[in-house]
Amino acid sequence: MKELTTDHISQQFNNELEMLRQHFLTMGGIVETQVQDAVQALLDANGELAEEVRAKDASVNELDGLIDEECTRILAKRQPAASDLRMILSISKAVSELERMGDEAKKIARLTLDLIQNGESPRGYVEISRIGQMVSRMIHDSLDAYARLDIDAAIKVAKKDREVDREYEAALRSLVTYMMEDPRSISSVINVIWVLRSLERIGDHARHTCQHLIFMVKGVDVRHVNVNDLADEVKGVYIVNRSHAIALG
């Protein structure tokens, strides 16, 4: 993040910030794999892969704790300001989003094992495949945006959450109708609905991750800004800040 952080007198400070960044991206990579594998395990009725997804949760939690300790130590020891402070606060919040994505992937794996145990192949797998691909791409692109400090890419990812929501709502309507027509399918389809709900939440967390990135780079809190207005909000802050700088000059 050399483009965002300043050159510090202490090389150790630079190393600490870079290590924090690397740990964040490593954790993100594990979570991305977790989500992809959770969906694939369900589609393939692969219990072994589902168990691997659950096992990865330990690594995610370990990194979550490690990054939290690093953020706390840097804040206490270095008392960072400006862009450095925003970076630490942003990563601290984004890590929580990643940890919750991992929890949802673990939940999908557990539901997969239940479906396998009961020998059920209910409706909704096509929707799971489609939405699973969408949220996996959101995670990948949000991490890529963090690596490159790409605000435009972050905004695009955030807007993708709307598409995920629409797909989820359409799938939910279809499955509820199916259960009404065939009450015998209710127990199995309910599990599929929970899987879809977890995927929808993962999309939300990916959107939030991008919002934290915007705060890191631009210093503006867009958590409560409509996704369609993100670009204008960021541009507006830039214009205001630039005008203020010109006035001071």
Rank of each mutant, 00 (worst) to 15 (best):
residue 113 L to H: 02
residue 31 V to K: 01
residue 139 I to K: 00
residue 118 N to V: 07
residue 243 S to C: 09
residue 58 A to L: 11
residue 152 D to P: 03
residue 9 I to L: 14
residue 221 D to I: 08
residue 172 L to A: 11
residue 93 K to Q: 13
residue 227 V to E: 14
residue 64 D to M: 05
residue 112 T to K: 00
residue 138 M to V: 06
residue 66 L to V: 13
residue 146 Y to G: 08
residue 203 G to P: 02
residue 2 K to T: 15
residue 41 A to S: 13
residue 74 I to L: 15
residue 1 M to I: 11
residue 24 F to D: 03
residue 66 L to G: 03
residue 122 P to K: 10
residue 21 R to S: 10
residue 171 A to D: 03
residue 68 D to A: 09
residue 88 I to Q: 04
residue 36 Q to E: 08
residue 192 V to N: 01
residue 33 T to C: 04
residue 42 L to I: 05
residue 98 L to Y: 02
residue 154 A to C: 06
residue 46 N to V: 08
residue 97 E to L: 01
residue 168 Y to W: 15
residue 169 E to C: 03
residue 26 T to N: 05
residue 2 K to A: 15
residue 188 S to K: 06
residue 137 R to I: 04
residue 154 A to R: 03
residue 176 V to A: 11
residue 175 L to H: 08
residue 79 Q to R: 14
residue 194 W to Y: 13
residue 58 A to E: 14
residue 150 D to I: 06
residue 203 G to N: 03
residue 156 K to Y: 13
residue 23 H to R: 12
residue 60 V to D: 03
residue 68 D to Q: 12
residue 210 C to R: 02
residue 145 A to Q: 06
residue 30 I to A: 07
residue 157 V to Y: 09
residue 52 E to S: 13
residue 42 L to M: 12
residue 161 D to R: 07
residue 240 V to Y: 13
residue 96 S to G: 13
residue 85 L to M: 14
residue 16 E to C: 07
residue 150 D to F: 06
residue 205 H to D: 02
residue 115 L to A: 10
residue 114 D to S: 12
residue 30 I to K: 09
